[in-house]
Write a protein that binds this DNA or RNA. Structure first.
Length: 806
DNA sequence: AGCACGCCGACT
DNA sequence: GTCGGCGTGCTC
């Protein structure tokens, strides 16, 4: 007897379960299987096999879900690594690699057993439920929950079950996706026979049938029914009649749902590289196999031609018979990129992202697995595409935090996973950025990665210099009596640009819902007296709170520094800016671009196209315009308030601000005309702002890395965030305190002096959907190991390398 | 996710 | 005492 270690699809099962493989089944490592689990049947993946069972009485695997294994041994190794590193259930890690629509759930349904009405002992609620279930057919539990609420529906259903008034059944939902098929019509018999039949049909006045048959006799391959109908303008009845006479056969043929079918692809020719691109390529090419794995940081300002290097690298890999994945931060914003790749590798590019229909996703997945694609493009999840012979992973804009999965387990960072994947499969990694993540640059600087620099900006008209950047001190504006959002210099520059019929972008760094309070006269920001973190304004309770230590205070009426009474709640929306611009330039055509406006992916494209076609003079927007926008006519960029990000309670605040400012600055002057950028700020001396104004990444890095070193922030230390959520506030707090005390005890007993514990404190989002949230942040001290030994009560979320921490 | 088990308040 | 509601832990 052989036994299998199975990762089961059941929440909270961190370890694997042992099952016996019946000798009648062909099941091995990587197979998806149905297994009995408690009273239910769940899906699982075999991650190992052995001759000895690991428990006394294992149950038997019921059967394979698919004939072929779904995962390769390398993928299982990667899943194990992810599960360990991010302290997540193994199934969650495995699930990343399964085909789209793989997961199938059981539905609980109820049916009336006896239709005896008027049982006197029934409560009104019970009667109601009985009524909802009805006499005929089955009713889903989910349906009842929707009407009565989850807890109540279940409780009352249980009561009725006990009275044997209803019966319960568990049914497996049908597959969410099926292969798409299209009917094709094929000639039966030879062409000569068909010709004879044509004549016979004509004689018998079946003119339509004769036409169809003649049409088919000139074709050697089966023809789609729709094509026949379109061509001969006949109904399907004609084809059915022919099929009944056994002259033709109608067959279902599988077709691919292709998300790229709408693209107009002119095969692109390879452009002549600039000298700096050539130099960078040479360096990359020379060091291609050096390192374990070889990781390159392609460091080049916006518009320096990184994409061309990616394409060359992909071409190199494809030429050697291998394949590549290109990760992008957000596919919705980069249709041009997809188009560019697709026209360079015609017919060999696949895209994978959640914006596609499940059918498209499945078809892409299967054609990738079948070896029909050389290049896969997509956001972080595309990393897990079943690409055989993976030789290269590219990560564009590697500093972007969309690469970190936050909302569900496993909370992985695609960069780290990419490097591990490359290590397991002998592939090369190229990380590209104009403003690399501090941790990445540190690794490159200290020799862990190859640093490849692209020094010049390339544009269609030749080299375009970086824009001139002016830092405007917002405090000076206030002293001069300007209480508006836009400074005099910026307004003057806008007026000039409008006069020259040039385009302007105004950028607002409005991040999240966090608002902080600042004194308008002296620039003082309310900070926590204990942690010096900017206090966050909670509008519901009308208080300022520190999310790190739980300090809270009512909103003061005046500034403690200068006694000024003009306190400003910052977090100004784009609408405010729009109103103000309209007041100053009533005749300018404005376009507002933020998450409120752009609902769909096409809305992005339309907005961008409108602006590019000069249908507006001024574009006002948030983060989004810093990313996908490339409009050559823009000569002026204004950053309304550069400090919003700086005051964010996160040690990466400086880094994020620098990155954002550089990105916005990179938007101006990409065409023939040079650009100007205005940065409005209350802290003109902050190193992130000063460095951004000079386009000086290295200068910024030098200061930032010292700050990180001093406080043992990444890359010199790591964090793990533990969030507990519970509907009961007291219980939530108590559990957080219990775990905190436990960790401190472990710190003593195990001798982990480096372990730092911050909290417990209410999490940044202190209450989400009726559940209170408390968090602990642990720094260093090999806590991941400790946590994997521990079984945390359910309700805890573990986030290794979280995005926003103190 | 579902089921068993154990704890606590309302009622026989 | 006992029944049932609710919270917690386990499922190979």
């Amino acid at each position: 007897m052989t036994y299998a270690e199975v990762a089961v699809n059941s929440p909270g099962s961190r370890s694997t379960f042992c099952y016996a493989i019946p000798s009648t089944l062909e099941v091995g490592v990587g197979h998806a299987v149905w297994v009995p689990f408690g009273s239910r049947v769940v899906q699982g993946i075999v991650v190992d096999t052995s001759d000895e069972p690991s428990v006394e009485a294992p149950r038997e695997i019921l059967g394979p879900i698919a004939e072929q294994p779904l995962l390769s041994p390398a993928q299982i190794r990667l899943a194990r690594w992810i599960s360990q590193r991010y302290v997540s259930p193994l199934f969650d890690a495995v699930a990343l690699m399964l085909p789209p629509g793989f997961e199938r759930k059981l539905t609980t349904r109820f049916q009336r057993v006896v239709s005896e009405e008027g049982l006197p002992s029934l409560t009104p609620e019970q009667r109601h439920l009985l009524h909802l279930i009805g006499d005929k057919g089955k009713t889903r539990l989910r349906e009842l929950e929707k009407r009565l609420g989850a807890g109540k529906a279940r409780r009352i259903a249980d009561q009725l079950l006990r009275y044997r008034l209803i019966a319960k059944s568990e049914e497996l939902e049908g597959p969410k996706v099926r292969p798409k098929t299209v009917p094709y019509v094929r000639l039966l018999g030879s062409k000569d026979e068909a010709q004879n039949e044509v004549m016979r049909l004509e004689r018998s006045r079946a003119r339509r049938q004769a036409e169809v048959l003649r049409f088919l006799s000139h074709r050697s391959e089966p023809v789609p029914v729709s094509e026949v109908r379109r061509h001969l303008k006949c109904s399907s009845a004609v084809i059915t009649a022919l099929a009944e006479r056994h002259l033709v056969a109608v067959e279902q043929v599988r077709v691919k749902r292709d998300p790229l079918s709408g693209l107009s692809l002119a095969p692109a020719q390879v452009p002549v590289p600039s000298s700096s691109q050539l130099a960078a390529w040479q360096l990359l090419d020379d060091n291609w196999d050096r390192g374990s794995p070889p990781v390159f940081l392609l460091f080049g300002v916006t518009g320096s031609g990184k994409t061309e290097i990616y394409l060359r690298a992909l071409a190199r890999v494809v030429a050697s018979g291998r394949r590549g994945i290109c990760l992008v931060p957000e596919i919705a914003l980069t249709p041009q990129t997809v188009e560019r790749f697709a026209s360079r590798f015609p017919g060999r590019v696949a895209v994978l992202h959640s914006g596609l229909s499940l059918g498209e996703q499945l078809d892409e997945w299967e054609s990738i697995a079948g070896g029909d694609c050389d290049v896969v493009i997509g956001p972080r999840g595309a990393l897990f595409a079943p690409l055989p012979e993976l030789g290269l992973i590219i990560m564009d804009e590697e500093h972007e935090w969309t690469y970190k999965q936050e909302d569900q387990s496993p909370r992985y960072h695609a960069r780290d996973v990419a490097i591990e994947l490359a290590r397991l499969g002998g592939a090369v990694v190229i990380l590209g950025s104009a403003t690399p993540d501090i941790e990445t640059f540190h690794k490159a600087w200290s020799g862990g990665y190859h640093l490849v620099e692209l020094k010049e900006r390339v544009s269609s008209g030749g080299y375009s210099p970086l824009p001139e950047v002016h830092v405007l001190d917002a405090r000076e504006e206030l002293k001069a009596g300007n209480r508006g959002l836009l400074s005099r210099q910026l307004l003057a520059a806008m007026k000039e640009a409008l006069g020259r019929r040039e385009q302007i972008i105004l950028f607002l760094n409005r991040r999240g819902t966090a608002t902080f309070v600042q004194c308008r006269s002296c620039g003082f920001i309310f900070r926590c007296p204990r942690c010096s973190v900017a206090l966050t304004y909670h509008s519901v309770e009308q208080r300022l709170a520190c999310h790190r230590c739980h300090y809270a205070t009512p909103v003061p009426e005046s500034c403690p520094e200068c006694s000024g009474r003009s306190l400003k709640f910052l977090g100004v929306g784009t609408q405010r800016v729009e109103e103000e611009v309209r007041r100053f330039f009533p005749r300018a055509r404005l376009l507002r671009w933020d998450s409120d406006v752009s609902g769909t992916r096409h809305a992005h494209e339309r907005l961008m196209a409108d602006f590019r076609d000069c249908k507006a003079d001024i574009l006002i927007g948030t983060q989004m315009i810093a990313k996908g926008l490339d409009v050559p006519q823009v000569t002026l960029a204004g950053i309304v308030n550069a400090d919003t990000g700086l005051n964010f309670p996160d040690f990466r605040a400086g880094e994020r601000t620098f990155q954002l400012l550089c990105q916005v600055a990179g938007r101006a002057g990409r065409g023939l005309k040079s650009g100007t950028v205005f940065i409005q700020t209350y802290c003109p001396d902050h190193y992130a702002i000063r460095a951004a104004a000079k386009h000086d990444y290295r200068g910024f890095y030098a200061q930032e890395i010292e700050y990180r070193r001093r406080y043992a922030y990444p890359p010199f230390g790591r964090f793990i965030r533990l969030v507990y959520s519970h509907p009961n506030e007291g219980l939530c707090r108590r559990e957080a305190e219990r775990l905190s005390a436990f960790i401190l005890k472990e710190k003593e007993e195990r001798g982990l002096p480096d372990l730092r514990l911050i909290g417990p404190a209410p999490a940044f989002a202190a209450r989400v959907r009726g559940r209170y949230r408390w968090q602990l942040v642990v720094g260093d001290g090999d806590i991941a190991e400790l946590l994997s030994e521990l079984t945390l009560p359910q309700g805890w979320i573990v986030d290794v390398d979280p995005v926003g921490v103190t």
